[in-house]
Design a protein around this nucleic acid. Structure first.
Ligand SMILES: [Mn+2]
Ligand SMILES: [Mn+2]
Ligand SMILES: [Zn+2]
Ligand SMILES: [Zn+2]
Lengths: 143, 143
DNA sequence: TTGCAAATGAGAACTATTATCATTTATAAA
DNA sequence: TTTATAAATGATAATAGTTCTCATTTGCAA
């Protein structure tokens, strides 16, 4: 059986407050999969929920630490977050329209691990971002 | 025959000014390979050369656009620069000591291109950063 | 209900970077 | 060589993203 949002928070050791529930459902409703703090803040404002920007930042970081969200650092400085479904993947970011596409390649993953291990590193994590233009599709995701 | 620094600048369409020459030789002397704007600024101060911080930022960006330097966005927000020797490579960053190690893997590179192309993207560039602890070496590169 | 640690919100502070603009400088013409 | 001038510089203001501070509010357990 599915668990409710308050349970998700409780399991993460976070008490279920109004701002946390609102932010979590924003991601779970899946309107937009990858969102910056500012994106989240604006979505909340737009739906009449007034949550402080500082709270948005705090909650996003807490959710990341609790494993509910994953944070990515794309070019452009601001971090973006997405629901953490436990499946690691990498990203292609379209430089024209900002569209983000996900991929996973077992061969790339294993070569990375091999390379780092051979050199005496214990891998924590990695990021692989491909910056490109979605030419064939003629950028259907204008922003 | 090797070309002088002023020639490097001239070839890049940049006139050879004192700050530009100082910044270029800082990278060419190779004391530190990967440097942030702040790193460059501090090195210059330390050697008695007073170049404005704004100039450091401007020159680094110009050198990047001219192809003299490559810029990387590691986690932590600040960009780092290194001499662009024309050979693309990726990075392993030690989370303990900050040491940066470089690698190149043809298999990873070609899989990336294949994946992006199959999905209709024209790749501009990519970044692959592995974040790790250099355990075997017991972090010999303390910062 | 009440108690209170935890969470929140408003705004200050901070960090990295870019913009503004008066002054200086590299270079090319005279 | 001077000189003209467009480009470059440096001080500092401004901006963007994010974190910190602290007085007030709130979830929740007794
Ligand atoms: Mn994703
Ligand atoms: Mn490098
Ligand atoms: Zn990956
Ligand atoms: Zn690569």
């Amino acid at each position: 059986m599915d668990r409710s949002q308050p349970d998700h928070l409780k399991n993460a050791g976070l008490k279920s407050t109004v701002p946390r529930l609102k932010i979590l459902s924003l991601f779970e409703l899946g309107q937009e999969r990858h969102m910056s703090a500012e994106d989240v803040y604006k979505h909340l404002l737009a739906s009449g929920d007034d949550v402080g920007l500082a709270t948005v930042y705090r909650v996003l970081t807490q959710f990341e630490q609790a494993g509910l969200l994953a944070r990515h650092y794309f070019e452009g400085g601001k971090s973006v977050f997405e629901l953490n479904h436990g499946k690691h993947h990498d990203h292609i970011v379209c430089l024209q329209c900002g569209h983000v596409e996900e991929f996973y390649d077992a061969a790339i993953e294993s070569r990375q691990k091999k390379i780092a291990t051979e050199r005496g590193f214990a891998v924590h994590d990695h990021s692989l971002h491909i910056y490109a233009d979605c030419v064939k599709k003629n950028c259907p995701h204008k922003r």
